[in-house]
Amino acid sequence: MPKLSIVVPCYNEQESIPLFYPAVEKVVNKMPVEVEYWFVNDGSADKTLDELRKLHQQNPDKVHYVSFSRNFGKEAGLYAGLEATTGDYVVVMDVDLQDPPEYLPIMYKYISTGEYDCVGMRRTDRTGEAKVKSFLSDKFYDVINKISDTKIVNGARDYRMMTRQMVNAVLSLKEYNRFSKGIFNWVGFKTKYLPYKNVQRVAGTTDWSTWKLFKYAMDGITDFSEAPLSIATWIGGMSAFLSILGLIFVIVRRIIEPSSSAFGWASMVCIMLLLGGLQLMCIGIVGKYIGKIYMQTKQRPIYIVKEKK
């Protein structure tokens, strides 16, 4: 019988875990697969670890968990969960049940035919989300798909079922700064997306603020596109070109009208501030890439395990 591994990253989800497990069990018990769960406690500050210990004690052969020494982020939790799995197929799910378990049999039906290497879920709406967050999310997909060779489907979730071959390919990428939505697409393999309507959390509150999502989006753009560096180069080139034109204009005007005075210190200060701001912005873009190189060369582990069962 094929084995299905379920990876569930958790951060401050003490309220969701007791609801998640029975809801998923109700579905997978009807599927022709052997199931194992790998919960990853990402340095939670609440009683998430206690809930996982309790769940493991009740189902020691089926439920397992990895607990980090501190919070390393969802990407690290996802990577740790994938590393721990032993199944022929691996599915990634959020513990808040925003990833509907009832789609698991449909995903398995498609992937078990051998026609697909991955079956993912794609939200068709963002009902319940703040309008600003929804707007920024849509624009992120528009931007990254225009500037990157790695295309990401708008609304695609981490919720997906993958073959062991694809999981091994994802794990072979040892980069420290990870953006899984991009990695899943970068490794290739044939993927089918199933549409579904947005589902609200069953309990607790999300830790993903608009600012955190913005930072995550910036990481995704810099991880999978060199366009920001090209933009910085163009800005620098245009600034230099305009400065040369301005210098020529001043010289010619001085020759034509020897008695003419300068435009004034205010305009000069504005020009200096503009050029200085553009330079700092370009340096910041370059620094972002250098920072990623710096972290990668340190060869620090993606996560540190404190407890594993």
Rank of each mutant, 00 (worst) to 15 (best):
M1N: 05
L4N: 07
E25F: 08
K26A: 12
Y37E: 02
D50H: 04
R53L: 11
H56V: 03
V63H: 06
H64W: 02
S67G: 01
E75V: 04
Y79Q: 03
E83N: 11
Y89P: 14
V90K: 00
D94H: 09
Y103T: 13
I106N: 09
M107I: 11
S112V: 03
V119Y: 01
G120A: 07
L136F: 09
Y141F: 15
Y141E: 07
A169F: 04
V170A: 03
L173T: 05
N177G: 02
F179L: 01
W186S: 07
G188A: 01
K190W: 04
K192L: 15
N198V: 03
R201Q: 12
W208V: 14
T210L: 15
Y216S: 12
A217W: 14
I221T: 00
T222S: 10
T222M: 00
A227R: 03
P228R: 09
I231Q: 05
L247A: 05
I248R: 07
F249S: 13
V250H: 08
S260I: 14
S261Y: 00
W265D: 11
V269I: 15
I271K: 06
L274C: 11
G277A: 08
Q279F: 15
L280G: 02
G284Y: 03
Y289R: 10
G291S: 13
K292A: 08
K298P: 06
V305F: 11
V305P: 10
K306I: 09
